[in-house]
Design a protein around this nucleic acid. Sequence first.
DNA 1: TGTCAATTGGCAGACGCTGCCATAATCTCG
DNA 2: CGAGATTATGGCAGCGTCTGCCAATTGACA
Lengths: 212, 212
Amino acid sequence: MQASEGATGLRERKKRRTRDALIRSALELFADHGYEGTTVDEIAAAADVSQRTFFRYFANKEEVALSVQEMVESHFFAAVCERPAAESPLTALRAAVLSSWDTIEEAIQSVVPLELHVRTFRMIQSTPQLLAAHLRRSMELEDRLTREITRREGLAEQDPRPRILVAAFSGVMRANGKLWAEVADGDMSRLKQATAGYLDQIGPALAENWRS
Amino acid sequence: MQASEGATGLRERKKRRTRDALIRSALELFADHGYEGTTVDEIAAAADVSQRTFFRYFANKEEVALSVQEMVESHFFAAVCERPAAESPLTALRAAVLSSWDTIEEAIQSVVPLELHVRTFRMIQSTPQLLAAHLRRSMELEDRLTREITRREGLAEQDPRPRILVAAFSGVMRANGKLWAEVADGDMSRLKQATAGYLDQIGPALAENWRS
DNA sequence: TGTCAATTGGCAGACGCTGCCATAATCTCG
DNA sequence: CGAGATTATGGCAGCGTCTGCCAATTGACA
C-alpha cells in the first residue's frame, strides 16, 4: 500500500503503459480512418494486445475515444473546487476554465500529441454516436458542478439556481467548443480570448429587451 | 399527389399501421423486460414483421424508443414558432411548453397509451445509451430553437445571447424532466405547476449574490 | 522458491445492423 | 381491367461490438 501516485509496482506501470498504448493507437487509427472505419480488432492489434484485453481496459469503443476528453474535464472540475469561496459562482467557473487550460496540456502530452487530441475533439463533434456519449458525460459533469456550487454557496439541495447557472455556463462552453472545432487552428490563446468574450454575455443574455 | 395529410392511399395507411405497431410492441416489451433485455427480433416478431423490416422503419433500436419523445419535441417546437412576435423569447418559450402540453396528449394516445409513454420516459432517463441519444437530439432542438429566436429578434447569427438563453431554458427543462421522472405520479397539472415555478428562477439565477 | 492473486488470450456465441436478391404487394396508366 | 413500373417485405449471409468462460501466463509477497 503506497501513498497515492508514483509507480507502485511493475504491474501498475505495465497496465498504465498498455492503457496509454491503446489510447494512442486508437486515436491515431481514428484520425486516419475515422471512428466507424476503425475496428476494435485493429486498435488491439496496433497496441499488441488481444481484443479481449481491450475490453478489459475500456467498457466500449466510445470510451477510448473520449478518454482524453475525460482527463480534461476532471482537470477542470478539480480547478473549480480549488477556487476561493469568496468568488461568485460564475467568476469561479470562468476562472477555472481559463486556468485549467494553462496546465492541462502537459498532462495530455504525456499520453498523446496535442494535435492528435485536437483532431479527436473535432471527430467527437462530427460523429453522432460519440457526440451523444460526450453529451451524456457532460451532463454528469453538470450534475457535479451543480452540487459543488450548491455546497460552496450553502444553498439547499433543491434550489434550482445553481443548476440553471451551470446549464447556462455549459451551454456557452458547448457553443464555444463547437465553434472552435469548426474554425480552429489549434491556437489556444485565441480560444481563451473567445471563451472569455462568450462568458461575458451570460449576464446580458438574460436581460430582457435585446432589441433596444 | 394529395395535399398534405389525410390517408393518401392504402400503401401509406399500411405503413403507418406497421410503424405504430412496431412502436407499441417495442415500448411494451421495453416496459416489461427493459431496453437491453429486449431484442430487435422480439420487437419485430411482436409486430409481425421481419427483423429486416424493423430496420427499414427505424435506423436503430434507439430510434423506436425515442420516437414518441420525438413527437413531443417537434410539437413543442411548432408551438414556439407560433408564438406572437411581440413576446419576449423567454416568455414565448415558457408559453409554448405549457400550451403544447395541453394538446400533445391525444397525439400520443393515437400511438400508445399515455401511461406507457410515461414509463418510457423514465426508462430513457435511466438507460445510459438512451439518455445519450436523447441528449444529442435535445442539442439539435436547442440549435433549432436558437436559430428561431435569432430570427424572431432580428439578431445577427453570431450573437451568442439566444444560444445562452436557450441553454439556460433547456437546462431548466432537463432538471424538471429528471425530477418528474423520479417522483412523478404522471399528474400533468402538477408537472405544469412545477415547470412554471422552475422557469421563474431563470432570472434570479443569473443575478449575483445569492447569499444575501 | 513456492503459493496466491491478477492479467491475459482465445474461443464461442448473442445481438445490432447492412447488403443483396427474390418475391409479393400496391400503384399507374393505357 | 390488365400489363408494367414502383415499392415494401422476407430471408440469408456476413461484419462488428461486446460478454462469459476457462486455461495459461505473469507479477507479488512471504
